[in-house]
Design a protein around this nucleic acid. Structure first.
Length: 212
DNA sequence: GACCAGGCACATC
DNA sequence: GATGTGCATGGT
């Protein structure tokens, strides 16, 4: 399994190159994006983030002062805007109260402790929590998403019944813990998922992983 | 017009 | 514990 996961990574990297994730200019912007991108295409999230940026709202305390209704209107292009406004505010409350709106303070906590704290927030599930920990704080946790599961399933590396933590363990127990690599690997899986899994049939001959 | 997107919580059985 | 449903915009 170790060799398999590593050869998939190498093949993806040699095919697609570095993906430059996360596409954001600050760690705080990553956390906002992680919540907004739940079940939503990134292009829609970008519009919502641009709205926040142009209004100079991309700071925790400033954003938290905004009424929920106003926030919902501004992030509308990201879809599910009412639930996401709530979820964002749930995170902001936590971030301000527990870490004084400081990314540095939040990053000083052990990854698994923070993960549990994030999971206790209504609206933050495993993928969002891990995205924040990996892409905003650069700590080595592997992010699992729908593409990752679909790809591993197609290549017979997991069972359909595998849950989020099962798949995460597969990567984390079989690869060297490297935030840099986990960052790239997950982004590459998303790239493969977007470019091939949706446009082609399973195991189609032009998939870069066909011989893996 | 149908289908999909870088999920999650909640209701129901 | 598994399964179904609501949440919503914008691109293909």
């Amino acid at each position: 399994m170790k060799n398999k996961l590593l050869s998939i990574y190498r093949k993806l990297y040699s095919t697609f190159g570095s993906q430059g994730w996360w596409p954001a200019s600050t760690p705080f912007e990553v956390t906002v994006g992680a919540i907004l991108t739940q079940n939503t295409s990134w292009s829609n999230v970008e519009k919502a983030i641009d709205n926040l940026k142009s209004r100079k709202l991309l700071r925790a305390k400033v954003l938290y002062r905004l009424p929920e209704k106003s926030l919902a209107r501004i992030i509308k292009p990201a879809g599910y805007y009412n639930v996401k406004a709530k979820r964002l505010r749930n995170f902001l409350k936590f971030f301000i109260q527990r870490y004084h709106a400081s990314i540095r303070r939040m990053a000083s906590v052990k990854a698994m402790v923070l993960r549990n704290q994030l999971l206790a927030i209504n609206g933050i599930g495993p993928e969002t929590a891990d995205s924040i920990i990996l892409y905003a704080l650069h700590k080595p946790v592997f992010v699992i998403d729908a593409y990752t599961k679909r790809i591993l399933l197609r290549h017979g590396l997991i069972k359909d019944s595998a849950c989020y933590e099962d798949i995460q363990r597969l990567f984390m127990h079989n690869l060297k813990r490297s935030g840099e690599m986990f960052n790239e690997y997950h982004a590459l899986l998303v790239k493969l998922g977007k470019d091939f899994c949706l446009k082609h049939k399973p195991k189609c001959h032009c998939c870069p992983l066909k011989k893996i």
